[in-house]
Write a protein that binds this DNA or RNA. Structure first.
Lengths: 350, 350
DNA sequence: TAGCAAATTGTGACCGATCACAAGAGGAAA
DNA sequence: TTTCCTCTTGTGATCGGTCACAATTTGCTA
């Protein structure tokens, strides 16, 4: 180990050189309003000259803020993706969005992985909370649904943001306009002249999934397009299940000219079946995915998809959490706009 | 703000209940050898009963360890990927690998984004180092090449791991067997009966890229296959440049039956040109990419590729850094095995 | 059984911020 | 001028660990 560890410049160093008390230096770095402009400037100059940076651990000890935001991700999902060699840019986007927001305010982002099983998750979160005492915690799916976790955070008095939830209340809930996504996907297809639009639904147990379905339904109604319940595929998000459903649809003599898939796995199933049946996408069949993972962007052809504003959602969550821990209230529901990315899986109706 | 912040259980609480001094508790949680078994057990029981977790900020204040590992990523790359809507699972894999290693030892991983420009990078790293005082820093490309950064870390006395560097010395350098990758890719093709294997090289300015090329060359020699310098494409990693090169190769009457691409962008170019010329992969042409990004895994057909052990490399880096900060020496070069993932872009020679 | 070294346990200072509160300075009103 | 209030600045305690060192116990040798 290196014993020549560079000695840190402390607040007292700055204070004695600037000829003020340590508390005044503290006031300057915290932008306290009650400091004379002349004093503030002198102190700031000394800070710059010495290259002083406040030690975050000490700040946490003395005060009740840690300048840390904890982002919780699901371990199983991360592990599964890793095992499957599947690409997942979720964390990458979180990092980008989170840093953008945290950096300017002097905050840092700590990512932690916790288990899916609720009991385990609780113990793990409790441990890391006690250890780090973050100012805020971001819960991502599926943990945003876990009430035991939010209860724990409430008990600790730590602000909590949930991604994909839309309750608001005591939380900073950041979500996407799910119904709008279903609506826009359908509208895009309708604008292209499609009148026979089928929908591969996810699970009725996921509220967000149902909202997207509702959006699709609304568009159908608005445009007076036929709603056929046999064209609502119960796909449970899985590739194999979707294969069966789509095969049935497309083998029928009166088949849909466009399909909306609630997630990318099911969208892939459409690609697969179409290929088997000799249907060319987008010439014979248009396809929109409501999930924009790397797979969707790199398929052949690249799929038109609804892009979830992941980076923006995390940025919003961080911003809200920072505000909360600064005494401002930022609780509530924030619905962020999605983006319909038009690629090559959609074209005019045949 | 919630004023009902849960009061933390402190070391002194544990001490008074267990009937020992606070220092003894400290010894137990730090696995100090000089504690009687009976005392250790009694203290441990009290810790468990109270759910005591040491406060990391306090540990950092008192001691000279922070139990924090800093992982530095490049901001531009992250931003570019985000802008392009390109999938990048690098951070996701880092998180997985890093957590696996850190968690058990009570360490935490903090990701930071810093700018590519060397001067900016230095200031940013300096700031975050002063603030967080991590026990170790992981530098990823391109920052692993930046000597100003490593000098800075040396000055602060902070251990440093570099991903993709192979010097060792004062660092924990974690890399992949680059030459082996080029060799194995070529061997795989040779085993399939290919004798005309072309190579789309990256840039001669990147040592690792050149090593892969050397590996390819070695295999050619070992199998007495013809080495043709006009089949070494100078591709500079870019799609467009590669297009030109590959078009020339494949339009020639005596053309390669297999191509190795140094990165995924160039591999895509091969796919593209082959499609244009009506060549079917892998029937008419085999293709191996030396980079396994999501794009490569999801192309049509999915490409055979060399998979970089990202998660393992970060795990190794974390392990080394933790060892270093515990007084053990872990400096040196660690070359981790890659994996040749056989997918559907390679087949027997036509 | 004394004597001494090694193993075990305890004591109080300390890290570098913030907090609560006290003290001083300055300006307006009486 | 005096008084009082507000704005600004300073003082010392405090957070919860670790460190250095002192005190005690234990075990072994003579």
């Amino acid at each position: 180990m290196d014993l020549t560890r560079k000695k840190a410049v402390t607040m007292r160093d700055v204070a004695s050189i600037a000829g003020v008390s340590h508390q005044t230096v503290s006031r300057v770095i915290n932008n306290s309003p009650n400091v004379k402009a002349a004093v503030r400037e002198k102190v700031q100059q000394t800070i710059d000259a010495l290259g002083y940076v406040p030690n975050s651990a000490a700040r946490r000890m003395g005060g009740n803020r840690s300048y840390l935001i904890l982002a919780i991700n699901d371990r199983q999902r991360t592990y599964d993706n890793w095992r499957a060699g599947r690409g997942n840019d979720w964390v990458d986007q979180m990092l980008f969005g989170g840093m953008t927001e945290c950096e300017a305010r002097g905050y840092h982002l700590v990512f932690e992985l916790i288990d899916t099983q609720p009991e385990k998750a609780q113990g793990q979160l409790s441990k890391v909370i006690s250890e780090l005492r973050p100012d805020g915690v971001i819960l991502t799916p599926p943990h945003s649904e876990n009430a035991a976790l939010t209860d724990l955070l409430k008990e600790f008095g730590i602000a909590c943001a949930r991604i994909g939830k839309r309750e608001g209340g005591a939380f900073v809930d950041v979500c996407m306009d799910e119904a709008g996504a279903g609506f826009e996907a359908a509208r895009h297809l309708a604008d292209l002249g499609h009148r026979q639009i089928a929908y591969l639904a996810g699970s009725p147990f996921y509220g967000n999934s149902m909202m997207r379905l509702d959006g699709y339904r609304d568009l159908l109604q608005e445009r007076s397009l036929p709603f056929r319940s046999d064209w609502i595929g119960k796909g449970d998000f899985k590739f194999d299940t979707a294969i069966t459903v789509v095969k049935k649809w497309l083998s029928h003599k009166e088949c849909p000219t466009a399909i909306i898939a609630d997630n990318d796995q099911m969208a892939f199933a459409v690609l697969h079946v179409a290929d088997r049946l000799g249907l060319k996408i987008p010439r014979d069949l248009s396809l929109v995915s409501l999930e924009d993972t790397p797979g969707v962007r790199l398929s052949v052809p690249p799929m038109t998809a609804i892009r979830q504003p992941t980076a923006d959602m995390i940025a919003k969550a961080c911003g809200g959490l920072i505000a909360e821990s600064s005494g401002k209230s930022a609780r509530g529901k924030y619905e962020l706009p999605f983006e319909l990315v038009k690629r090559e899986s959609t074209a005019s109706a045949p």
